[in-house]
Every structure is written in C-alpha cells, then in structure tokens.
Nucleic acid binder design. Structure first.
Length: 428
RNA sequence: GUGAAAGUAGCUCAGGUGGUUAGAGCACUGGAUUGUGGAUCCAGGGGUCGGGGGUUCGAGUCCCCUCUUUCACCCCA
C-alpha cells in the first residue's frame, strides 16, 4: 500500500533540507548577533491556550487531539502563547529586558495555497519588558538585518509600518466609538487587497454616517506621517502616537535601515491584541502574501495570567520567504554545497580494508570522509569522489607496500605521494 | 468551508475524433576505460497512465465519484 504525504506538508530531501537549514541558520545567526537568546517549548499545548488570544473561530484552523486522559490538546499554530506562559512562570526571576528568539515548527489546518502550508517554520523574536519605541525599532532592525544579510535589498522588500494606537486615536477623533473599532480594523486591513468601490461598500456596512466614512477614506489615503495633521485635528493621544511613530522612523534611520521602511496607514494586522506599532514585510512588487509581520502587544502577558508587561516582536515564516529567494535566484549562489574532506579509494579488493581503516582514522581526526562499499574500478570510485564533492581523494594501492599513500587534489587534479605516518601526523 | 484548473517514469513533458506490447529528454545503474573523476558514446532498470466505479468487443483517451496539487475566496495568529 502506497501512502502519500499528508496534505500541506513537505518532504525535505537533502536538496530541500539544505535550503531549510540555510534559512534557519541565518535566522539564528542574526538573532544571536542582535543579542537574543533561543528558547523553545512543546510542540503541542492545551487547546485552551490558543483560544485565549484568538477566540473560538481559530479552533477550526487547529490540528487538535485528545490524549488518553481526555485532555484537549492542539499542535501549536504559533509560539507566542507558549512564550507568554514561559515568561509568566518565571517573571520575577528573569533578568529584564527579555530578548528571546525561537524557530518553532508550526501547524495550521488551513487550505494550502501559494506561500501557505499546513506545516512550516517561523522565526520569532520578542523583546519583553521594554516600552520604549527603541525596542520596536530594534525588532524591525533585526528583520532587515537578516534580509540584508541574505542579499534582499531595498529593491526586493519593504517594511510597511503603522501604529494601532495611533489609528485608534484618529478613528476616535473622527467619532468612531471604541467598540466599533475592532470590526472596522478588519475592513481597513483588507483595503490594499480590494478595489476602491468594494472597500467603500464594505465601509458602508460598518459605518452609517457618511461624514465619518469620508473622513476615514481621506485618512486612509495619507501617505506620510506629516499629512495626518493636515487631514485631522489631533488630540493629545493621537499627537503622542504620531510623535512616537516619527521617533521610530528616526531611530530606524539611526540604525541604518530607514530606506527599507515606509509608513503605511493601511497596516492594521488582523489580530486584536496589537496595541501600538504594527508592521508587515512584503516583497517590493507586492506579488506575494506578507513575508512576515509583528508589532507591540502590551496586554498579552496579562491575558495569559501574568502581570502587565510591555512586549514587542515579530514572526517570519519560511514559505513566502523561500518563494521569494527562489524567484530572486538567491539560493543557488549562497547555499553551501555538500562537502567531503576526503574520499578514500582502493585500487582493488586487497586494499579495501586498508581504505576503510584510513577512512576511520580521518573520521577520528574530525574530517568528513567516505569510502566505496565496492572495490569498483578506480574510475568509478573517482567519479563517486567527484559526485560527493570531495576536496581530496586518497588512493590506496601498491604504494602502501612502501608505506605510502597517493593524495589527489580533486580541484586541481594534482597528485602527490606521501608517507603514511607523515600524512596522519600532519593532519590538522 | 466555497469556486476554478491540473494529475502519464524520480523530474520536464509527448501520446489526432477510443484500437497491438505507452514514448522522449534529463536523472539513475552498468559498460566502452584491468591504477585516475567532471565529457562523450552504447546498453539497462524503472509506469496497475493519481485511485475507484461506469460506458464499450476494447479506455491513458469518454462519463461519474474520490484523493492530491496549483490558483483564487474565507481566514491569516
């Protein structure tokens, strides 16, 4: 019986595994150099854990299961709840600020499509315990630091930034009451993906007052922070959050990543828990879905039973990123090739054991080394060495009778005859 | 969950209106080459034509169902 792979999953053959490792190693490297420490949690949690933040609708998008004790569990669709739990558990003993990162494997039971699978990896970094906008700037810097590192420039990607807090203040200044905001966000979040008239029609369903609607549409058309003041009279909270956003861009400039970042009032983020700065990262042509996104979530830890502690962070998935890297041709150039230090060939069957022995000595000395299972013709073995991308090939043959080995450099093709003992003595 | 398109070898694809034993290129294995790789030439292995049912003397080809993939919608933590 032939069993196919599960819908929305991927098999990682060595070629795909190399890509996955390269991406994840890059994430880890950038996290560490930006001063973050790695953490992880279990791959499944109580189902409840994922309902706190996101509500019941989300349960349909989860892979859930019941254990033999009747506990309702789910494979994690995100790691932030786990992070919240872990931080809350030790909140008093953890040195602040907390700068942690993780690369969890996540599961979502959605219908797969371009850039979205049911199992994927996501780079998360979070700063907990800092309410300064400098932390938001640093988080954005980290993302850009990575993209720049792998060769994605300002022509390739863009970070679109706004502020939930500011948007709330502005909408309230227009006369939208607080409990209308949530539903309105959902519409505003979709604006960039909808034709203007569809957007306006959806707005009609939410906001009856035509004056308010016009104000909102006018507001959503601003394309710089300065224009906001021209469009509306700012109250104190609004002015403060506008200033904060201005300070953020200033800091991004100081950090040297200002040219990757733009203000975009249309960035709202779907989920309810964002409280301040929000951002999303897109390919410049905007042909793919968001590569990642994040923002400030100052109430979340409290929702998970902890104290009110400010937090900010982001998540970047591997699927859209992988597509973009492929399209930009950045994988071929940068992927490390399989590399074997030595391939040990034997000239005939009588030297096979000697070849095995040489290989084992090389391995003990921490070199990547292989031998041929069959004492095949030398040309076959050399081809194997070549296929396995060996740097050097050791040929074990009649020279061994005089305690010598042939070392062939596979890039230059040059060979030398070297004393057996001397070779191992000089191995570094 | 809704809608559309596709599925033939490991990969990319040929297979006029149904008709012998389903093909090619690449990849893989072996040989040409008995101690020298990447090239070339030759040969070989590999398919229940996604799966099931139906129509037919006969189905890769026509019809129905199903699975998977892709794309869009819903959603996007």
């Amino acid at each position: 019986m032939k069993i196919p792979p599960v819908k929305g999953t991927r098999d990682f053959y060595p070629a795909e595994m190399a890509v996955r490792n390269w991406i994840i190693d890059g994430w880890k490297k950038v996290s560490v150099r930006n001063g973050f420490e790695e953490y992880d949690g279990p791959i499944f949690e109580y189902l409840k854990m994922f309902q706190i933040k996101s509500g019941d609708e989300i349960v349909e998008q989860l892979f859930s299961l019941q254990d033999r004790g009747g506990r309702d569990l789910a494979l994690r669709p995100e790691i932030t709840p786990t992070l919240a739990r872990m931080v809350n558990q030790r909140i008093n003993s953890l040195p602040k600020p907390i700068k942690w990162f993780s690369v969890p494997r996540l599961f979502r039971a959605e219908r797969p499509q371009k850039g979205r699978l049911r199992e994927f990896f996501q780079w998360n970094i979070d700063i907990i315990g800092v309410d300064d906008v400098l932390a938001d700037a640093e988080v954005i810097f980290c993302a850009v630091d990575y993209f720049r590192d792998i060769g994605l420039g300002t022509d390739d990607i863009v970070v679109k930034i706004s502020s939930r807090e500011m948007l709330a203040a502005l909408l309230q200044a227009i006369g939208i009451v607080e409990n209308e905001l949530e539903l309105l966000y959902a519409v505003l979040d979709k604006r960039s993906r909808l034709p203007d008239d569809t957007f306006e029609q959806m707005l009609v369903e939410r906001i009856a007052d035509e004056n308010k609607r016009e104000k909102i549409i006018e507001l959503m058309c601003v394309d710089s922070i300065e224009q906001i003041g021209d469009c509306l009279e700012l109250n104190k909270t609004a002015q403060e959050s506008v200033d904060e956003l201005g300070r953020l861009f200033e800091l991004l400039g100081v950090m040297g990543v200002g040219d990757y970042c733009v203000f975009d009032i249309g960035i709202v983020r779907g989920l309810a828990y964002y409280t301040g700065i929000v951002f999303e990262i897109y390919d410049k042509a905007s042909e793919l879905r968001a590569i990642g996104g994040g923002g400030r979530y100052d109430n979340l830890l409290k929702q998970f039973g902890g104290p009110a502690i400010p937090a900010t962070g982001f998540g970047i998935g591997d699927c859209v990123l992988g597509i973009l890297l492929e399209e930009k041709g950045l994988l071929q150039k940068q992927l490390p090739e399989r590399n074997l230090d030595y391939f040990v060939a034997c000239v005939d069957e009588s030297y096979k054991d000697a070849a095995v022995k040489v290989t084992m000595r090389l391995r003990s000395a921490c070199f990547a080394a292989n031998f041929s299972y069959k004492a095949a013709k030398l040309n076959k073995q050399l081809k194997q060495a070549s296929d396995q991308n060996a740097n050097k090939c050791i040929i074990v043959g009649d020279e061994l009778k005089e305690d010598k080995l042939v070392i062939k450099d596979m890039t230059t093709g040059e060979q030398e005859l070297i004393d057996f003992d001397k070779f191992f003595a000089e191995l570094k």
